[in-house]
Design a protein around this nucleic acid. Sequence first.
DNA 1: GCTGGTTTCTAGATCGTTCTAGTGAGAATA
DNA 2: TATTCTCACTAGAACGATCTAGAAACCAGC
Lengths: 339, 339
Amino acid sequence: MTKQQRRATLMDVANAAGVSRALVSIVMRGAPGAAEGTREKVLEAARELGYRADTRARLLRSSRTKLLGLVFSSSQPFHTEIVDAAYAEAAARGYEIALSAVAAGRPEERAIESLLDVGAEALILISSTLSNEELARHARQVPVVSLLRDEVGEEVDSVSSDDHAGIRIAVEHLTNLGHRRIVHVDGGSAVSADHRREAFRAEMLRHGLEPVVVPGGPDEEAGIRAGRNFQAFAPTAVIGFNDRCALGVMEGLRASGLKVPADVSVLGYDDSQFARLSYVQLSSISQDAPLLAAAAVDRAVDRVEGTRPPASVVRMPHLVVRETTAKAATVQTDTASVG
Amino acid sequence: MTKQQRRATLMDVANAAGVSRALVSIVMRGAPGAAEGTREKVLEAARELGYRADTRARLLRSSRTKLLGLVFSSSQPFHTEIVDAAYAEAAARGYEIALSAVAAGRPEERAIESLLDVGAEALILISSTLSNEELARHARQVPVVSLLRDEVGEEVDSVSSDDHAGIRIAVEHLTNLGHRRIVHVDGGSAVSADHRREAFRAEMLRHGLEPVVVPGGPDEEAGIRAGRNFQAFAPTAVIGFNDRCALGVMEGLRASGLKVPADVSVLGYDDSQFARLSYVQLSSISQDAPLLAAAAVDRAVDRVEGTRPPASVVRMPHLVVRETTAKAATVQTDTASVG
DNA sequence: GCTGGTTTCTAGATCGTTCTAGTGAGAATA
DNA sequence: TATTCTCACTAGAACGATCTAGAAACCAGC
């Protein structure tokens, strides 16, 4: 059995350096109030003993943990891209990130509780599925920032991407390429699915086109299933709920012998790592995850430090054109021509 | 500005229930020494006030947090499957998981420090890239379990899958199907890459076959790149370093007009969610992530509770046959018809 | 009533920090 | 010389839990 050696404490350093604990504390924090000579003597002793401040004790006393809680879903690769960016921004502002995943058998509430237990000073929730009431309840204890979901009430911050604008850009991109028969495979019960679906309907009507929506979901399987349902409509372009869904759609088309983009254009949403894969090269609507993550961390820090009241930030998505969208085939069979 | 209400403490509950702090502590821990009646009165008061024990304070005094630190890589979807399983097993044993990701600009050491700071009692490191010396250094402070990497020294636990056996199973599966020209796209500098490469060489020689290894890596891009390099050899079967690599290989074959599995069989490794996608149906060597995760959590808990000394656990992988491996084409000549 | 043994409960110390309210020494000012 | 002002430093009380030791209440046996 390996013996675990006790960690050096402030007291040990103080004894070694021949000063009081308080002074060591001052030196270790880099706070003013110590003479240059003693400062160095203390640092020397600390180095000697391999001293590292015990964060728990420090935080217990100062009630500052400099810890931001981030709840993500372990099954959404897109979320992990946000995690990466959040770490970077948090570090830049002198905070740490505490992660907690929503997984099978582990609801969002549990994930949140575990973050509060380790002392998170604020919560950032990605695509939260909690009700506004539940969010408000947590917001009474600690600042809450909702990421990728807006309309979360007065007390909760939100950082999201303009879904309507994203769909508008998508529809415009495709109509500019001459597409008229465009299908949207929706996200089913996923968080932004309603927004995108409604936006699609509105934008298609605005262009005088029939808005065909096929039930889908957030993953490849959903895209493939949806493919079987829109074959009859013979679209020349498909807008997927997200990239994974669009990948499924592409796979379905490929199975039916249709070429992308020669026969059908496919547009994804999220601009995730899947879209960027060299053999996929999926055109997609980018929400710019790193920027969203940074904005969320910024708001969380501002709230923790009391510099700002809760607010909603909405960022504009943008189009990334790759190789799955192209001009519509020139032979447009029975559709109405442009007005 | 929303006023943040102070979190309830033991003292608050004690006052509300009309008992001492110590008794509340006893009740909350479920320790013996409280009458049934008062126990319920205290629990009621705690529920009323929404009391949750402060992990930092608890740790400071008792050095027990019931928190296991788990380090994973945010860019490896396979890791997130492990995360899911770890949560479940930890919960079953009465522990919580604290997550910390290795990401761009966030080395493993930083991930570890942040876990120790929140009070993790043990560390589980997935595919750690630390040296054995560094691992040993941490192991002196806290039990360390290395997951998916073995040969980590005396003081460190390890839970891994038998890579040699996995490759043996893979090679046997393919030779049983009549394949003779088999290529292994290796994992480059990834953690288990060396083991699998050497195992492949040994197993192929054992079957009297030429072991052709092509440099690869852990993702789709690597698989595609590798594809360009083994065309000349015209293999009838390919073993990818992992599923993502195998996916890239398949994509490359498809681009060259070759059919899987009619022309070439492809076998993955990990049996990840990618392999299971309905349009992929990749045959793969399963390491059974959930079991590995559970074993790692078990070892960590056992170590924390002092019931066992460090040890190595090696689990047997097994074959999952799906649709990307099939009998070798009957015409096996030394001249392949590839351009 | 007294003693002894449970069971239930509590006071107070303690963990390793930070924070508050000082003390003491020396320099500057009156 | 006495007073004030810094500056460097320290003692001791927090923070919110657990733990130890012991008190109080109750019951049994003699």
